[in-house]
Protein backbone atom coordinates (compact mmCIF):
# COMPACT_ATOMS: atom_id res chain seq x y z
CA UNK A 1 0.00 0.00 0.00
CA UNK A 2 1.40 3.39 -0.93
CA UNK A 3 1.24 6.39 1.40
CA UNK A 4 -1.40 7.93 -0.86
CA UNK A 5 -3.58 4.84 -0.59
CA UNK A 6 -3.17 4.77 3.16
CA UNK A 7 -4.26 8.38 3.48
CA UNK A 8 -7.15 7.80 1.12
CA UNK A 9 -8.28 4.79 3.14
CA UNK A 10 -8.21 6.83 6.34
CA UNK A 11 -10.16 9.59 4.64
CA UNK A 12 -12.71 7.03 3.54
CA UNK A 13 -13.04 5.80 7.12
CA UNK A 14 -13.77 9.42 8.03
CA UNK A 15 -16.40 9.66 5.30
CA UNK A 16 -17.99 6.43 6.47
CA UNK A 17 -18.09 7.68 10.04
CA UNK A 18 -19.67 10.92 8.88
CA UNK A 19 -22.30 8.95 6.99
CA UNK A 20 -23.05 6.73 9.98
CA UNK A 21 -23.16 9.41 12.68
CA UNK A 22 -23.80 12.67 10.84
CA UNK A 23 -26.12 10.79 8.49
CA UNK A 24 -28.21 9.50 11.36
CA UNK A 25 -28.49 13.07 12.66
CA UNK A 26 -29.80 14.19 9.30
CA UNK A 27 -32.16 11.26 9.21
CA UNK A 28 -33.52 12.16 12.62
CA UNK A 29 -34.45 15.52 11.13
CA UNK A 30 -36.21 13.69 8.31
CA UNK A 31 -38.45 11.90 10.79
CA UNK A 32 -38.98 15.15 12.63
CA UNK A 33 -40.28 16.63 9.38
CA UNK A 34 -42.72 13.77 8.91
CA UNK A 35 -43.81 13.51 12.53
CA UNK A 36 -47.00 15.46 11.93
CA UNK A 37 -48.68 18.22 13.93
CA UNK A 38 -47.60 19.51 17.29
CA UNK A 39 -49.68 17.11 19.36
CA UNK A 40 -49.26 14.00 17.31
CA UNK A 41 -45.54 14.50 16.75
CA UNK A 42 -44.64 15.26 20.32
CA UNK A 43 -43.44 11.85 21.47
CA UNK A 44 -41.27 10.97 18.46
CA UNK A 45 -39.83 14.49 18.39
CA UNK A 46 -38.80 14.20 21.99
CA UNK A 47 -36.97 10.99 21.37
CA UNK A 48 -35.32 12.49 18.28
CA UNK A 49 -34.10 15.51 20.14
CA UNK A 50 -32.93 13.44 23.04
CA UNK A 51 -30.90 11.21 20.78
CA UNK A 52 -28.94 14.02 19.11
CA UNK A 53 -27.92 15.90 22.24
CA UNK A 54 -24.33 16.88 22.89
CA UNK A 55 -22.78 14.65 20.24
CA UNK A 56 -24.07 16.65 17.30
CA UNK A 57 -21.01 18.81 16.86
CA UNK A 58 -18.60 15.95 17.16
CA UNK A 59 -20.55 14.08 14.49
CA UNK A 60 -20.36 17.08 12.27
CA UNK A 61 -16.59 17.52 12.48
CA UNK A 62 -16.10 14.31 10.47
CA UNK A 63 -17.04 16.26 7.38
CA UNK A 64 -14.41 18.90 8.12
CA UNK A 65 -11.94 16.09 8.62
CA UNK A 66 -12.71 14.63 5.19
CA UNK A 67 -12.36 18.03 3.56
CA UNK A 68 -9.01 18.95 5.08
CA UNK A 69 -7.53 15.54 4.36
CA UNK A 70 -8.78 15.74 0.77
CA UNK A 71 -7.42 19.20 0.10
CA UNK A 72 -4.04 18.54 1.64
CA UNK A 73 -3.46 15.06 0.24
CA UNK A 74 -5.21 15.27 -3.13
CA UNK A 75 -5.24 18.99 -3.92
CA UNK A 76 -6.15 18.88 -7.64
CA UNK A 77 -9.14 16.63 -6.92
CA UNK A 78 -10.42 18.95 -4.21
CA UNK A 79 -10.00 22.04 -6.40
CA UNK A 80 -11.82 20.38 -9.29
CA UNK A 81 -14.69 19.10 -7.16
CA UNK A 82 -15.21 22.31 -5.20
CA UNK A 83 -15.06 24.61 -8.22
CA UNK A 84 -17.21 22.59 -10.60
CA UNK A 85 -19.75 21.66 -7.95
CA UNK A 86 -19.90 24.98 -6.17
CA UNK A 87 -23.67 25.26 -6.57
CA UNK A 88 -24.66 22.07 -4.70
CA UNK A 89 -21.86 22.78 -2.23
CA UNK A 90 -23.26 26.23 -1.51
CA UNK A 91 -26.74 24.79 -1.15
CA UNK A 92 -25.49 22.08 1.20
CA UNK A 93 -23.62 24.73 3.16
CA UNK A 94 -26.76 26.83 3.52
CA UNK A 95 -28.56 23.75 4.75
CA UNK A 96 -25.84 23.20 7.32
CA UNK A 97 -26.10 26.79 8.49
CA UNK A 98 -29.87 26.57 8.82
CA UNK A 99 -29.64 23.26 10.59
CA UNK A 100 -26.82 24.20 12.90
CA UNK A 101 -28.39 27.52 13.79
CA UNK A 102 -31.76 25.96 14.51
CA UNK A 103 -30.03 23.37 16.63
CA UNK A 104 -27.92 25.94 18.44
CA UNK A 105 -30.88 28.15 19.19
CA UNK A 106 -33.48 25.49 19.86
CA UNK A 107 -33.36 25.78 23.63
CA UNK A 108 -33.20 29.46 23.69
CA UNK A 109 -36.75 30.59 23.13
CA UNK A 110 -40.10 29.80 24.60
CA UNK A 111 -42.09 31.65 21.98
CA UNK A 112 -44.15 29.23 19.99
CA UNK A 113 -43.62 31.05 16.69
CA UNK A 114 -39.84 30.90 17.04
CA UNK A 115 -39.91 27.32 18.18
CA UNK A 116 -41.94 26.42 15.12
CA UNK A 117 -39.55 28.32 12.88
CA UNK A 118 -36.48 26.64 14.34
CA UNK A 119 -38.17 23.26 14.27
CA UNK A 120 -39.18 23.70 10.65
CA UNK A 121 -35.80 24.91 9.43
CA UNK A 122 -34.09 22.08 11.32
CA UNK A 123 -36.32 19.48 9.73
CA UNK A 124 -36.29 20.97 6.25
CA UNK A 125 -32.55 21.43 6.05
CA UNK A 126 -32.02 17.92 7.42
CA UNK A 127 -33.45 16.67 4.16
CA UNK A 128 -31.96 19.13 1.70
CA UNK A 129 -28.39 18.91 3.01
CA UNK A 130 -27.87 15.16 2.51
CA UNK A 131 -29.66 15.45 -0.81
CA UNK A 132 -27.13 17.95 -2.14
CA UNK A 133 -24.23 16.01 -0.67
CA UNK A 134 -25.62 12.98 -2.47
CA UNK A 135 -25.75 14.85 -5.79
CA UNK A 136 -22.08 15.69 -5.30
CA UNK A 137 -21.27 12.03 -4.75
CA UNK A 138 -23.25 11.21 -7.89
CA UNK A 139 -21.37 13.81 -9.89
CA UNK A 140 -17.99 12.42 -8.86
CA UNK A 141 -19.08 8.80 -9.26
CA UNK A 142 -20.42 9.34 -12.78
CA UNK A 143 -17.21 11.01 -13.94
CA UNK A 144 -18.71 14.45 -14.47
CA UNK A 145 -15.97 16.33 -12.63
CA UNK A 146 -12.97 16.66 -14.91
CA UNK A 147 -9.65 17.72 -13.37
CA UNK A 148 -8.95 21.45 -13.64
CA UNK A 149 -10.58 24.53 -12.29
CA UNK A 150 -14.29 24.72 -12.94
CA UNK A 151 -13.62 22.53 -15.95
CA UNK A 152 -16.92 20.71 -15.65
CA UNK A 153 -20.35 22.10 -16.38
CA UNK A 154 -21.57 23.87 -13.26
CA UNK A 155 -25.17 22.82 -13.89
CA UNK A 156 -25.29 19.45 -15.60
CA UNK A 157 -22.49 18.06 -13.45
CA UNK A 158 -24.98 17.68 -10.61
CA UNK A 159 -28.35 17.89 -12.38
CA UNK A 160 -28.27 14.46 -14.00
CA UNK A 161 -29.70 11.01 -13.38
CA UNK A 162 -26.81 9.65 -11.30
CA UNK A 163 -26.71 12.74 -9.09
CA UNK A 164 -30.45 12.59 -8.51
CA UNK A 165 -30.08 8.94 -7.62
CA UNK A 166 -27.23 9.85 -5.29
CA UNK A 167 -29.32 12.54 -3.62
CA UNK A 168 -32.33 10.32 -3.10
CA UNK A 169 -30.24 7.43 -1.81
CA UNK A 170 -28.40 9.75 0.59
CA UNK A 171 -31.66 11.03 2.06
CA UNK A 172 -33.06 7.51 2.22
CA UNK A 173 -29.97 6.05 3.83
CA UNK A 174 -29.93 8.79 6.47
CA UNK A 175 -33.59 8.21 7.24
CA UNK A 176 -33.04 4.47 7.41
CA UNK A 177 -30.07 4.72 9.75
CA UNK A 178 -31.92 7.15 11.99
CA UNK A 179 -35.01 4.99 12.18
CA UNK A 180 -32.99 1.92 13.08
CA UNK A 181 -30.99 3.80 15.71
CA UNK A 182 -34.13 5.36 17.13
CA UNK A 183 -35.68 1.90 17.52
CA UNK A 184 -32.87 0.89 19.76
CA UNK A 185 -33.08 4.20 21.65
CA UNK A 186 -36.79 3.63 22.14
CA UNK A 187 -36.07 0.19 23.47
CA UNK A 188 -33.58 1.58 25.95
CA UNK A 189 -36.34 3.88 27.13
CA UNK A 190 -38.69 0.89 27.36
CA UNK A 191 -41.12 2.81 25.22
CA UNK A 192 -42.95 0.14 23.27
CA UNK A 193 -45.21 2.44 21.32
CA UNK A 194 -42.27 4.48 20.01
CA UNK A 195 -40.41 1.28 19.26
CA UNK A 196 -43.32 0.13 17.12
CA UNK A 197 -43.54 3.57 15.54
CA UNK A 198 -39.93 3.67 14.37
CA UNK A 199 -39.81 -0.02 13.55
CA UNK A 200 -42.60 0.38 11.04
CA UNK A 201 -40.85 3.35 9.52
CA UNK A 202 -37.48 1.64 9.39
CA UNK A 203 -38.94 -1.32 7.56
CA UNK A 204 -40.81 0.85 5.07
CA UNK A 205 -37.79 3.00 4.30
CA UNK A 206 -35.56 -0.06 3.96
CA UNK A 207 -37.93 -1.57 1.42
CA UNK A 208 -38.12 1.75 -0.41
CA UNK A 209 -34.35 1.99 -0.53
CA UNK A 210 -34.21 -1.53 -1.93
CA UNK A 211 -36.64 -0.53 -4.65
CA UNK A 212 -34.69 2.62 -5.45
CA UNK A 213 -31.51 0.59 -5.67
CA UNK A 214 -33.14 -1.70 -8.23
CA UNK A 215 -34.12 1.30 -10.36
CA UNK A 216 -30.64 2.66 -9.71
CA UNK A 217 -29.08 -0.32 -11.44
CA UNK A 218 -30.75 0.72 -14.67
CA UNK A 219 -29.85 4.38 -14.14
CA UNK A 220 -26.18 3.66 -13.51
CA UNK A 221 -25.96 1.29 -16.41
CA UNK A 222 -27.17 3.95 -18.79
CA UNK A 223 -25.70 7.03 -17.20
CA UNK A 224 -22.48 5.94 -15.48
CA UNK A 225 -21.22 2.85 -17.30
CA UNK A 226 -17.72 2.98 -15.88
CA UNK A 227 -18.97 3.01 -12.30
CA UNK A 228 -21.53 0.36 -13.16
CA UNK A 229 -18.86 -1.96 -14.51
CA UNK A 230 -16.80 -1.49 -11.40
CA UNK A 231 -19.78 -2.19 -9.18
CA UNK A 232 -20.72 -5.44 -10.87
CA UNK A 233 -17.16 -6.72 -10.97
CA UNK A 234 -14.76 -5.73 -8.21
CA UNK A 235 -17.43 -4.04 -6.12
CA UNK A 236 -19.88 -6.91 -6.31
CA UNK A 237 -19.00 -8.67 -3.04
CA UNK A 238 -19.52 -5.46 -1.12
CA UNK A 239 -22.79 -4.66 -2.85
CA UNK A 240 -24.07 -8.15 -2.09
CA UNK A 241 -22.91 -7.77 1.50
CA UNK A 242 -24.87 -4.53 1.71
CA UNK A 243 -28.01 -6.21 0.42
CA UNK A 244 -27.57 -9.04 2.90
CA UNK A 245 -27.01 -6.67 5.82
CA UNK A 246 -30.01 -4.60 4.78
CA UNK A 247 -32.27 -7.62 4.67
CA UNK A 248 -30.75 -8.81 7.91
CA UNK A 249 -31.58 -5.57 9.64
CA UNK A 250 -35.20 -5.80 8.55
CA UNK A 251 -35.47 -9.34 9.87
CA UNK A 252 -33.82 -8.36 13.13
CA UNK A 253 -36.24 -5.48 13.52
CA UNK A 254 -39.17 -7.75 12.84
CA UNK A 255 -37.83 -10.04 15.56
CA UNK A 256 -37.49 -7.16 17.98
CA UNK A 257 -33.74 -7.10 18.17
CA UNK A 258 -33.14 -3.37 17.54
CA UNK A 259 -29.63 -3.45 19.02
CA UNK A 260 -28.40 -5.96 16.45
CA UNK A 261 -30.47 -4.33 13.72
CA UNK A 262 -28.52 -1.17 14.37
CA UNK A 263 -25.25 -2.95 13.68
CA UNK A 264 -26.64 -4.57 10.54
CA UNK A 265 -27.99 -1.24 9.31
CA UNK A 266 -24.64 0.45 9.80
CA UNK A 267 -22.94 -2.41 7.95
CA UNK A 268 -25.32 -2.08 5.02
CA UNK A 269 -24.47 1.60 4.57
CA UNK A 270 -20.75 1.03 5.12
CA UNK A 271 -20.66 -1.66 2.46
CA UNK A 272 -22.22 0.64 -0.13
CA UNK A 273 -19.73 3.43 0.57
CA UNK A 274 -16.78 1.07 0.28
CA UNK A 275 -18.33 -0.61 -2.73
CA UNK A 276 -18.31 2.73 -4.48
CA UNK A 277 -14.64 3.28 -3.56
CA UNK A 278 -13.61 -0.17 -4.78
CA UNK A 279 -15.57 0.23 -8.01
CA UNK A 280 -13.96 3.55 -8.79
CA UNK A 281 -10.41 2.64 -7.81
CA UNK A 282 -7.76 3.63 -8.99
CA UNK A 283 -9.50 6.80 -10.16
CA UNK A 284 -10.28 9.76 -7.94
CA UNK A 285 -11.92 11.57 -10.81
CA UNK A 286 -13.02 9.25 -13.55
CA UNK A 287 -11.96 8.81 -16.29
CA UNK A 288 -8.62 10.60 -16.00
CA UNK A 289 -7.24 11.45 -12.60
CA UNK A 290 -5.81 8.54 -10.65
CA UNK A 291 -5.09 8.44 -6.94
CA UNK A 292 -1.34 8.49 -7.57
CA UNK A 293 -1.52 11.35 -10.04
CA UNK A 294 -3.61 13.49 -7.70
CA UNK A 295 -1.58 12.73 -4.59
CA UNK A 296 0.56 15.31 -2.84
CA UNK A 297 4.31 14.62 -2.61
CA UNK A 298 5.62 11.95 -0.22
CA UNK A 299 6.79 14.49 2.35
CA UNK A 300 3.30 15.87 2.74
CA UNK A 301 1.72 12.43 2.81
CA UNK A 302 4.12 11.26 5.46
CA UNK A 303 3.42 14.32 7.61
CA UNK A 304 -0.28 13.62 7.12
CA UNK A 305 0.04 10.01 8.20
CA UNK A 306 1.92 11.01 11.33
CA UNK A 307 -0.64 13.61 12.28
CA UNK A 308 -3.54 11.30 11.48
CA UNK A 309 -2.15 8.65 13.82
CA UNK A 310 -1.41 11.12 16.61
CA UNK A 311 -4.73 12.84 16.06
CA UNK A 312 -6.64 9.58 16.20
CA UNK A 313 -4.87 8.66 19.43
CA UNK A 314 -6.21 11.86 20.95
CA UNK A 315 -9.64 12.01 19.36
CA UNK A 316 -10.83 8.41 19.58
CA UNK A 317 -10.59 8.03 23.40
CA UNK A 318 -12.16 11.47 23.82
CA UNK A 319 -15.05 10.50 21.58
CA UNK A 320 -15.54 7.25 23.46
CA UNK A 321 -15.60 9.22 26.72
CA UNK A 322 -18.27 11.60 25.36
CA UNK A 323 -20.42 8.79 24.01
CA UNK A 324 -20.25 6.74 27.19
CA UNK A 325 -21.07 9.77 29.31
CA UNK A 326 -24.02 10.44 27.06
CA UNK A 327 -25.18 6.85 26.88
CA UNK A 328 -24.86 6.31 30.61
CA UNK A 329 -26.89 9.30 31.68
CA UNK A 330 -29.21 8.53 28.80
CA UNK A 331 -30.13 5.20 30.28
CA UNK A 332 -30.22 6.69 33.79
CA UNK A 333 -32.82 9.27 32.77
CA UNK A 334 -34.76 6.60 30.96
CA UNK A 335 -34.81 4.54 34.17
CA UNK A 336 -36.29 7.39 36.16
CA UNK A 337 -38.50 8.80 33.42
CA UNK A 338 -39.99 5.46 32.49
CA UNK A 339 -43.62 5.68 31.57
Amino acid sequence: MTAAEAVLAIMWVGLTTYALFGGADFGAGFWDLLAGGTERGRAPRRLIEHSIGPVWEANHVWLIFVLVVLWTSFPPAFAAIASTLYIPLTLAALGMIARGAAFAFRHSTDQLAFQRLFGASFAFSSVTTPFFLGTIAGAVASGRVPPGIAAGDVITSWLNPTSMLGGVIAVGACAYLAAVYLCSDAQQHHDLSLLAYFRARAIVIALLLGGIALVGIAVLRADAPQLFNGLISRGLPLILASVAAGIGSILLLARRRPGLARVAGALAVTAVIWGWAVAQYPYLLQPELTVQAAAAPETTLRAMLISLVVGAALVVPSLVFLFTLFQRSHSETSQTAKH
Binding site: I64, V68, W71, S73, A80, A296, P297, T300, G311
Partner: peptide, 17 residues
Protein backbone atom coordinates in the same frame (compact mmCIF):
# COMPACT_ATOMS: atom_id res chain seq x y z
CA UNK B 1 -5.82 24.87 -3.25
CA UNK B 2 -4.86 22.97 -6.40
CA UNK B 3 -1.27 24.22 -6.33
CA UNK B 4 -0.58 24.70 -2.67
CA UNK B 5 -3.08 22.55 -0.81
CA UNK B 6 -0.26 20.08 -0.21
CA UNK B 7 1.55 22.68 1.93
CA UNK B 8 -1.06 25.19 2.95
CA UNK B 9 -3.54 22.48 3.84
CA UNK B 10 -1.41 20.78 6.44
CA UNK B 11 -1.99 23.17 9.37
CA UNK B 12 -5.70 23.00 8.54
CA UNK B 13 -5.57 19.26 9.11
CA UNK B 14 -4.08 19.78 12.54
CA UNK B 15 -6.65 22.51 13.14
CA UNK B 16 -9.32 19.96 12.27
CA UNK B 17 -8.11 17.74 15.08
Amino acid sequence: MARFGQIYGFPFTLEGF
